[in-house]
Design a binder for these strands. Structure first.
Lengths: 344, 344
DNA sequence: TGGATTCAAACAATCGTTTGCGTTAAAATT
DNA sequence: AATTTTAACGCAAACGATTGTTTGAATCCA
């Protein structure tokens, strides 16, 4: 009843040839005549033969798949990264094994172990929020498993990576606020132990100092993770006596929370307070006022991370010592929430 | 220099036991004493042993991974589906191999072949726009590879599936418009050869007839795929003499296009024209006016698709004849774009 | 004609695990 | 004391493909 799947043994038997001939014929090896290649392909199709990559991978010692571990999967940024990665790895013949750390260190470690067990050709990774130790990464590096990190990278580790120029673009954003006449600029940031937020904070501080703006520690709000937290902090901040006149946010979601609170408090944007977000989410140009934000080109980041990975995999004499870092240049997209000129 | 990876043979040798003992010890087999299990685990850790699932899979004839093929990956809906799927398959010990058909029939077929070659335990699939033939699906069904479809399913094929009650909720949406006093209701739909859009169209027609509303063929706009197309068609429609007073859209993106055009034409929403979208995208509650939409619970759909898959995989005497269909109940979320009462 | 060369295909080992069956020694049963 | 049972582990054959090395036949050149 249940026919077993046909293997190359079956097609070999049917043709009275050896399995090696079938294998080589199907792989287009040059030492097989055109005539037999044709016969083999024909019979293989007749028998509905489907190659068994598991067996092939075991023999070859190489698997045609690449692992991807992300902190989240259902965000605009991350899903576009995956899209970019897939657009490169698929044409190259690789499967993509995706797992989501869910911002959880333990799951990140477990996922790495699972990918190792699956013998993936390499791992593309963006760190979870909670990850502070990197032994799990050193481990795969020491085993010569290609590793490419993107966005949230581990600075102290010497690995190939794709990053944004977070610091520089943040400086630009602050300079833009300054040019619009804002002088009392606050920052709402996600946890700064994470590479990207650390750099955004760095840019903020650099710009303030180079522009000669006073730094007010009450205006530096860290550890904001959700819209609700942003709303809460904004409410406190803008009810205080010493109010800022602009807010730089490290994500659009945070900026959204700030905007909602400002509206609730009856504060005009951008006349009274300017707001800038980060990552140019879909909604940024749709809300009122439209939100000035920073486009990170997530798809490009994915594409480059994947290309880097393929380079490493293909490079026989890849040295663990030398590492590339690809910088994707973000772009400041000026919209109404920071554009005082428009509204005067 | 380059130490080879340690295998079960290495730990067996170091302990002077057989590989079978090591294998059984690591897998917690009952016929191995606690004492040796401990020793084996200890040495395995010392040698930094990592199991080779490729070899194990070959031997077992079973692979611990599930394939997922989606028409797109970077949409709110789809990325939330993946999120739901992953949340079920990961704890169950399965890897997720994801590929994106990109709405392309050929890539869908190729992806299926690739997943077959990878010997995945099963395939979770949502059809591409272009897919009209289903031979590639019949093929994997006939080979007893578990198949679960969701959202965009192949009706004619008898497979397990997870779907929304698109028809019913569309009827409700139209009834809601009717209750709000709208009588001349148009529909902007994506191609209706696709299961979900077909059902939404069906619901639209059913509701119109049961409510005794006149059906105007000029108000049935099909094949809308992008925001731009929606804008274009809306412009034509609302400049005509015979205008509708409400538009039901089969996606929020389409609704957004319609709203933008209506605003451009100076038409009041919802006073003059009501608008309803579909799928409750992030931006729906953020735009002006807030958009009435239909929540599809994509994460739930993913969770259920994955659970269904695990059921099938685990079911030894799974019959190809009997199939489950899980219905996820969508919800109409009424917001300003259709709510005349609010604004009177 | 004989030897070298080339071409096409076969042989057989191998990748790292799993697992049915067999073995051994100790414990339990009669 | 003889026998059966049990616990704990070893043996060796798979799983399905790849690939270095041989082999046999056909072709070539002198």
């Amino acid at each position: 009843m249940e026919k077993k799947k046909n293997t190359i043994v079956d097609v070999a038997r049917k043709l009275n040839v050896s399995t090696s001939t079938v294998s080589r014929a199907l792989n287009g090896h040059h030492s097989i005549s055109e005539r037999t290649k044709l016969k083999v392909r024909k019979v293989a199709a007749e028998l509905n033969y489907s190659p068994n990559n598991v067996a092939a991978s075991l023999r070859r010692g190489k698997v045609n798949s690449i692992g991807v571990i992300l902190p989240r999967i259902n965000s605009t940024f991350m899903s576009n990264c995956i899209f970019g990665i897939e657009s490169v790895t698929y044409p190259a013949g690789y499967n993509l094994i995706i797992s989501c750390s869910n911002e959880d260190y333990k799951k990140e470690v477990q996922s790495i172990a699972a990918l190792k067990a699956s013998q993936v050709s390499g791992i593309i990774l963006s760190l979870s929020n909670e990850t502070k130790k990197t032994a799990h990464l050193s481990n795969i590096i020491s085993q010569n498993i290609p590793l490419v990190m993107f966005d949230r990278i581990a600075e102290l580790l010497n690995v190939d990576s794709v990053v944004n120029d977070d610091t520089k673009i943040t400086v630009q954003a602050i300079e833009h606020l300054h040019a619009m006449g804002f002088r009392k600029i606050a920052i709402f940031s996600s946890p700064t132990h994470i590479y990207v937020y650390k750099n955004r904070m760095k840019g903020y501080l650099e710009a303030l100092s180079s522009l000669g703006l006073t730094l007010n520690h009450n205006w530096i709000i860290e550890n904001i993770q959700t819209k609700e937290q942003a709303q809460h902090s904004a409410e406190i901040l803008f009810k205080a006596k010493d109010k800022p006149d602009a807010v730089f946010c490290t994500s659009d979601t945070i900026a959204l929370g700030v905007i909602q609170t400002l509206k609730k408090l009856g504060i005009q944007i951008p006349q009274e307070v300017g707001v800038i977000g980060y990552s140019n989410d879909t909604f940024s140009e749709l809300i009122q006022p439209t939100l000035t934000s920073i486009e990170q080109y997530p798809q490009e980041m994915g594409v480059n991370a994947a290309k880097l990975m393929l380079d490493i995999i293909g490079d026989k004499n890849w040295s663990m010592q030398v590492h590339k870092q690809i910088h994707i240049k973000p772009r400041l997209i000026i919209r109404d929430s920071s554009n005082r000129l428009l509204t005067e």
